[in-house]
């Protein structure tokens, strides 16, 4: 048995696997299959100041090796999270990453203030949701906006702040450096890539929102590339995600420079994926003489 534990921005996790925001709700849905304490951490569904309805259906479209979603941050708001979801998560042994999103800087500041003094371990500031008109990706695609919001939110929280970046940009490195400069404690990437599918019979987009975010194995090489570029450009830790579907993918992501990783869409295909990936990491480490999984972070040897 290898040591899979990692310390990520000061937070101890028993393994580097975090279930990605939006793919795992608040952890209630999969407990019929296995205990939440199996996973290293959970990144909650994107939570906003007030309850949010989300976009009209259809919200899901299949793609080769992946899917599009246009859920649009449907959630019950921060108050419900604090009263109903967080107490449930506290019963388990796992790191809680509160994924938050707001339409304005003030909203984001208010959100994180409300998380002060709670058991939340890490704040993941989503400046990259492609599915909401206001805020969301608008913050994440402009480096000055990304810097400004990071600064304001960092000032309003005593918890580690991880900023989640959008891949829908020309230079991910510029954005990463901008949020690092304003005090981000970590960076997570990638959020979904903007995509579209059309039903050729009706000539209508499959998603009612016309466009949506692409995730799943299809995006994996893009995610590895971006994580590698960002990890090489910043000094703060990186949490890698996008298309991871097996232990080998997770190892690849860590070798690219991610200190921990998140998995999302793969769980729709295989709800046991978190358990299988953790077991697979153990096996791989044992076979390859790796005593602590952290040894492999950033060990890719570029040509």
């Amino acid at each position: 048995m290898a040591d899979l534990s990692v310390k990520f921005c000061g937070v101890d996790m028993k393994n580097p696997l975090i279930t990605a925001s939006g793919a795992y709700g608040y952890g209630r849905e999969y407990t019929d299959l296995y205990s939440l304490s199996k996973i290293g951490g959970i990144s909650t569904k994107g939570t906003t100041l007030y309850e949010k309805d989300g976009n009209p259906p259809p919200r899901i479209a299949e793609t080769p090796c992946g899917m599009l979603n246009s859920v649009g941050l449907q959630n019950g708001g921060i108050k419900k999270f604090l009263a109903y979801e967080l107490p449930n998560l506290e019963k388990n042994n796992l790191a809680v990453v509160a994924n938050v999103a707001g339409g304005t800087i003030e909203e984001c500041v208010e959100l994180v203030s409300m998380l002060e003094g709670t058991s939340v371990n890490i704040i993941e500031l989503n400046i990259s949701c492609p599915n909401v008109k206001q805020g969301g990706a608008a913050f994440g695609t402009n480096k000055d906006c990304a810097a400004e919001i990071t600064k304001a939110v960092k000032n309003a929280t005593s918890k580690p702040l991880m900023v989640k970046l959008s891949p829908n940009v020309t230079s991910i490195v510029d954005i990463a450096k901008a949020v690092e400069a304003e005090g981000a404690d970590a960076i997570s990437l990638i959020n979904t890539l903007l995509g579209m599918r059309i039903d050729i019979k009706s000539r209508r987009p499959i998603l009612k929102n016309n466009v949506g975010g692409l995730s799943g194995p299809a995006v994996f090489p893009i995610a590895v590339r971006m994580v590698w570029q960002v990890a090489n450009a910043v000094d703060i830790p990186v949490c890698g995600m996008g298309g991871i579907s097996c232990a080998e993918d997770a190892i690849e992501m860590m070798m690219a420079g991610a200190e921990c990783f998140q998995i999302g869409a793969v769980m729709f295909n295989d709800p046991y994926a978190p358990v299988k990936i953790i077991d697979g990491l153990n096996e791989w480490c044992d076979k390859n003489g790796v005593k602590n999984i952290s040894e492999i972070v950033g060990t890719v040897k570029p040509w």
Partner: peptide, 9 residues
């Protein structure tokens, strides 16, 4: 997608 109420799709 998920079929179990997690993704809100």
């Amino acid at each position: 997608a998920c079929g179990v109420g997690a993704c809100l799709g």
